[in-house]
C-alpha cells in the first residue's frame, strides 16, 4: 500500500483551473520532488495535499483514509515554507514548541522535546533568540525543527532553500538529505531547482500547466524523458532539441532530435556545421555554444579544449545518444 495516494485531484481559482486530474502514488518513506516552471501548479499541489488549499474534486488518501476534507492538522503533515514562516514575536524555543503548546501538552514535555530537536539541528545556543536575530540558514533550521517536533507522517517542503545564498543552499541540501536518513517519514519537496530535485529525490514529478508530465527516478527522467518538455527541463545545461526540418537532416523520421551536451562532440566528421558563439570554462568541464543554422547548440568540451570563439566546427554524435520526439513532443 502506498503511503499517499492522490486520485483525480482538480483545483481551480475562480474560472482558472490550475490542477488537472492529478493522479499520483507516493510510496511510504519516499522522497518525492515536484518540479516544473513557475506557475505550473507544484506549490498549489503541495498546499492542496497539506490542506491549505481547498480542492474542487478528488481524493487524497493517506494510508487508506481520505483526508481531502480534513483540517491541515488532522492530516498529520508538517510543512516548511519558503519564507520560513517563523513567528517573529516568539523565541526559537516558542517557535519550535508552538504546535505542542497549541495542543495543550505539559510544559516539561514541550521543553524536553524542543531541546532534543534543537540538539539534532544544532540550534541549542539559539533557543532564546528571536528569528530576527538569526541568519537565513538558522531560520530555515528552526522551521525544519518546528516540523520535526510533530513527528508527522509526511514532511512537505515548499521551496525551502530558495531564499538562501548558493553556498548555504548546498549545506542545507546536505542537511535535508541527512534528516531524511534519520527520519522515518515521507518527504514531498517542491523546487524549481533541478539540481535539488536530482540530488534529493527518489522520485521526481515533473509538472507543466497543472498536469503531470512524467513521474520517475532522477536517472529515468534524465535518460528516458517522456517528452521534449521533460527532456529540456531535466539536466543542466539542458538537452539540445534540434528541429529535423530546420537542420535538414535527411532520412530522419522524428520531428525533433534531443541530444545532451555531453553526448555531442566536435570533430572532423560531424554532421552539423556551425560557429562557436560562446565558451564557458567552468573548471572541471567547459561548454561551447555553437550556432548551427539559426539554432544554438550546447556542446560539452573537455577542460583543456583549445577551441576559440568564431571558430568553425563540425558537431557529431553517437546514434544511441539520440532522443527522438514526434511533432507533439512525445517520445518515439
Amino acid at each position: 500500500m502506498s503511503s499517499l495516494d492522490i486520485k483525480h485531484l482538480n483545483k481551480s481559482y475562480g474560472s482558472v483551473q490550475v490542477l488537472h486530474d492529478i493522479n499520483l502514488e507516493i510510496p511510504e518513506n519516499a522522497f518525492v520532488v515536484f518540479v516544473g516552471p513557475s506557475g505550473c501548479g507544484k506549490s498549489t499541489l503541495l498546499r492542496s495535499i497539506a490542506g491549505l488549499e481547498e480542492i474542487d474534486s478528488g481524493e487524497i488518501i493517506l494510508e487508506g483514509r481520505d483526508v481531502a476534507k480534513e483540517a491541515p492538522v488532522d492530516r498529520d503533515f508538517a510543512m516548511v515554507f519558503q519564507s520560513y514562516a517563523l513567528y517573529p514575536q516568539m523565541t526559537v524555543r516558542d517557535n519550535i514548541g508552538f504546535a505542542l503548546s497549541v495542543a495543550g501538552r505539559p510544559k516539561a514535555e514541550i521543553h524536553r522535546k524542543v531541546d532534543e530537536v534543537a540538539q539534532m539541528l544544532r540550534l541549542t545556543e539559539y533557543l532564546d533568540r528571536k528569528p530576527a536575530d538569526l541568519s537565513g540558514g538558522q531560520r530555515q533550521r528552526v522551521a525544519i525543527g518546528r516540523a520535526i517536533l510533530r513527528s508527522p507522517k509526511a514532511f512537505l517542503f515548499d521551496e525551502p532553500l530558495s531564499n538562501l545564498d548558493a553556498e548555504l543552499r548546498v549545506d542545507m541540501r546536505l542537511q535535508i538529505a541527512e534528516l531524511r536518513r534519520q527520519m522515518s517519514a515521507t518527504f514531498i519537496y517542491v523546487t524549481h531547482d533541478q539540481v535539488e530535485a536530482m540530488t534529493l529525490a527518489d522520485q521526481i514529478v515533473v509538472l507543466r500547466a497543472g498536469r503531470i508530465e512524467q513521474v520517475g527516478s532522477p536517472m529515468e527522467l534524465y535518460h528516458h524523458p517522456a517528452n521534449s518538455f521533460v527532456a529540456s527541463f531535466i539536466g543542466s545545461p539542458k538537452m539540445n532539441l534540434l528541429s529535423v526540418a530546420d537542420l535538414g537532416l535527411a532520412g530522419e523520421s522524428a520531428a525533433t532530435l534531443g541530444v545532451r551536451p555531453e553526448h555531442l562532440s566536435i570533430g572532423a566528421d560531424g554532421a552539423l556545421e556551425g560557429t562557436i558563439a560562446a565558451i564557458e570554462n567552468l573548471g572541471p568541464v567547459s561548454y561551447a555554444y555553437v550556432d548551427v543554422r539559426g539554432a544554438r547548440v550546447t556542446v560539452q568540451l573537455p577542460p583543456a579544449h583549445g577551441f576559440a570563439l568564431e571558430e568553425a566546427v563540425k558537431i557529431g554524435w553517437a546514434d544511441d545518444a539520440l532522443h527522438r520526439f514526434d511533432a507533439e513532443g512525445r517520445r518515439i
Binding site: V73, F81, F98
Partner: peptide, 8 residues
C-alpha cells in the same frame, strides 16, 4: 498557514 499546520 504555518499556525494552521501546527493545529491552531
Amino acid at each position: 498557514d504555518a499556525a494552521r499546520m501546527d493545529g491552531a
